[in-house]
């Protein structure tokens, strides 16, 4: 059974090699482009393009707080899905008890969503 345990790990080293490839490939492409590209610098070319209007101010500003509200809610629900996946895989062995517990868990989350809804956290204005 020792051999069996390899199965759960075998893909991951390959995955990291592929990720490395995914990192190196665009860098190589950019490097090639840096070498072969034509350069014809003019002053107007190096200005920010905002539909031809004169740009004012800096674009590096603070974001609206609504983004953070949605990000917080997203983290909650994302963690919920992480909890749900193991349950889905071992549904058979957990049986009715697992089903009822998960229903309760989902109910609490649904209540949370309704609460956020009533508090107007889901409004995008």
């Amino acid at each position: 059974m020792e051999a069996e345990s390899y199965f759960h790990l075998n893909g991951f080293p390959l995955l990291f090699i592929l990720l490395l490839g995914g990192l190196l490939m665009p860098l190589t492409l950019l490097g090639i482009a840096q070498v072969v590209q034509f350069k014809n610098p003019t002053d107007l070319k190096y200005t920010t393009y905002e539909s031809g209007m004169d740009t004012f101010g800096d674009a590096k500003i603070q974001f609206d707080v609504k983004f953070y509200l949605f990000a917080l809610l997203f983290i909650l629900f994302d963690i919920e899905t992480v909890f749900l996946f193991p349950w889905a895989v071992s549904f058979e062995s957990l049986g009715l008890r697992g089903l009822v517990i998960m229903y309760l868990f989902l109910d609490i989350l649904l209540l949370g969503l309704i609460y956020a809804w009533k508090k107007d956290a889901l409004r995008w204005q």
């Binding site: 995955l15 592929l18 990720l19 995914g22 665009p26 090639i32 590209q37 014809n40």
Partner: peptide, 30 residues
């Protein structure tokens, strides 16, 4: 597109501007 000039305006963050497409590209082949 390979032969086109890679325009970067002075106000831009050079490193992050280059990293943006690289990170966007990174997971696709995996």
């Amino acid at each position: 597109l390979l032969f086109k000039e890679d325009v970067m305006t002075p106000g831009q963050d050079k490193l992050l501007f280059t990293l943006g497409p690289v990170i966007f590209f990174l997971p696709v082949f995996v």
